[in-house]
């Protein structure tokens, strides 16, 4: 029920809105990126790409089940990040969407390259694609997280 007696003045209303903005800034500035868990995303990507080295490309090729394990691992890391930071984001922003798509595309491409290397008897070179997957996935996970934090600043 409305009560005119309780209504704030113009200045008080403006100050209340400014306080809301300041609180959002404070929250965004205090939420720290959980670096170890972002690195865990990179390690997961690297492990999945490295799994190509255990396959036998050719007519008898059977895709490894590591994809499902990696998916479960990714969800587990996302859960741990929420517990670590104490915040579950409502929106993560378009940049985060592109970063996640980039992680999937990069890992798929590097997995394909790794299969090609294995079929060319260059199994050792999978170390290079796996390391690349680690670096790119870690970086893109950081981009996605920073995008989510940037969304906290928005009005």
């Amino acid at each position: 029920m409305e009560n005119d007696f309780e209504r704030p003045t113009r200045e008080a209303a403006a100050e209340a809105l400014n306080t809301l903005h300041a609180d959002r800034e404070r929250l965004a500035n205090t939420v720290e990126a959980p670096r170890l868990l972002l690195v865990a995303f990179g390690a997961l990507g690297a492990w999945w790409v490295a799994a190509a080295a255990t396959t036998d490309p050719g007519s008898s090729y059977e895709p490894p089940t590591s994809g499902w394990i990696a998916l479960a691992g990714g969800l587990a890391i996302a859960y741990l990040i929420r517990r670590e930071t104490g915040i579950r984001f409502r929106v993560m922003g378009a940049r985060a969407g592109w970063a996640v798509a980039g992680i999937v595309a990069t890992c798929l491409a590097l997995f394909s390259v790794s299969l090609g290397l294995v079929s060319s008897d260059l199994r050792w070179a999978v170390t290079l694609t796996s390391t690349t997957a680690f670096l790119i996935t870690t970086w893109l996970a950081g981009v996605a997280y920073r995008s989510a934090i940037a969304e906290l600043h928005r009005d």
């Binding site: 306080t19 809301l20 609180d23 959002r24 929250l27 205090t30 939420v31 929420r82 930071t85 104490g86 915040i87 579950r88 984001f89 409502r90 969304e151 906290l152």
Partner: peptide
């Protein structure tokens, strides 16, 4: 202020 912060997140830890 509580509502302002909760409105930006899906969920927030009490301590945060």
């Amino acid at each position: 202020r509580i509502c302002g912060l909760l409105n930006k997140a899906d969920r927030l830890d009490f301590a945060v």
